[in-house]
């Protein structure tokens, strides 16, 4: 819990400091009759969807940080001394590579869109999606392998957490795939509006973010 407290304290301190330094010291009653510029509109000159994604990632960070904290607290002997490390299926390494490849393909698609090269991002998008889906299939296989080992007790928190955390991460990938599918279909149908470029860009950010979460999660699973 203390780690999460620290994270929240740091993040909120940074946000508050940022706002404080820029705006919160203003004495608004002095600027009577002036339009006054609205600096954050300039500062956040990014589209609303991008800002919303930023906040969504903050929410997801909070979610996973809390899961990780619960994980580590449960390992702590003060909260139970029955943690038995479980074997980690080797396929997880392959899955990591798949997710990395998916993320890179997304970046490729984003570069194509950004550079206005005229090339369609469609192949890059499809490859990224296929890699992501294979990642999910790989995760399911990992579950299958663990299940087949047979002599593992579900009351062992290490096993429970394995299913729980990989499952929650997988659900987030699925959610991303929904947005990806919408964008890909629209690209396939030949629509080229700025909003599609934005979708591709935001998908890319999300993909990288879930890759980072997976790497942290995988690290946590491997070391415990």
């Amino acid at each position: 819990m203390s780690m999460w407290t620290l994270v929240v304290a740091l993040v909120s301190a940074l946000v508050v400091w940022y706002l404080l330094a820029r705006q919160l010291m203003a004495q608004p009653w002095l600027a009577d009759g002036e339009v006054g510029y609205t600096p954050d509109i300039e500062a956040f000159a990014s589209p609303a969807k991008k800002v919303a994604l930023f906040f969504l990632l903050a929410v997801i960070s909070s979610l996973f940080a809390l899961f990780f904290t619960a994980y580590m607290m449960r390992m702590n002997p003060a909260h139970g001394d029955d943690w038995l490390s479980i074997p980690k299926p080797d396929i997880l390494w392959l899955n990591t590579v798949l997710l990395l490849a998916s993320s890179m393909s997304m970046q490729w698609a984003k570069n194509l869109v950004n550079h206005q090269s005229g090339k369609s991002p469609l192949p890059a998008l499809i490859i990224a999606g296929v890699f992501a889906i294979s990642f999910l299939v790989g995760q399911l296989l990992a579950w299958q392998q663990l299940y087949n080992i047979g002599n593992l007790q579900i009351s062992n928190p290490a096993l429970g957490f394995f299913y729980l955390l990989t499952g929650v991460h997988g659900l987030h990938i699925l959610g991303g795939l929904y947005v990806w599918a919408r964008a890909t279909i629209r690209v396939f149908m030949g629509i080229t509006t700025p909003s599609i470029n934005l979708s591709v860009e935001l998908c890319t950010v999300y993909w990288h973010y879930l890759l980072v979460i997976w790497l942290v999660l995988f690290g946590l699973l491997l070391t415990t």
Binding site: L19, Q23, L24, A26, Q27, P28, E34, V35, G36, Y37, T38, P39, D40, I41, F44, A48, V51, A52, F55, L56, V59
Partner: peptide
């Protein structure tokens, strides 16, 4: 709540009219 909340926050940060600074 998360769907609503993302909306509220983004609206406050992105859709304020001209002249509406945070401290106003």
């Amino acid at each position: 709540f998360t769907m609503g909340g993302l909306n509220y926050v983004t609206t406050v940060f992105q859709a304020r009219c001209q002249g509406m600074t945070l401290m106003r």
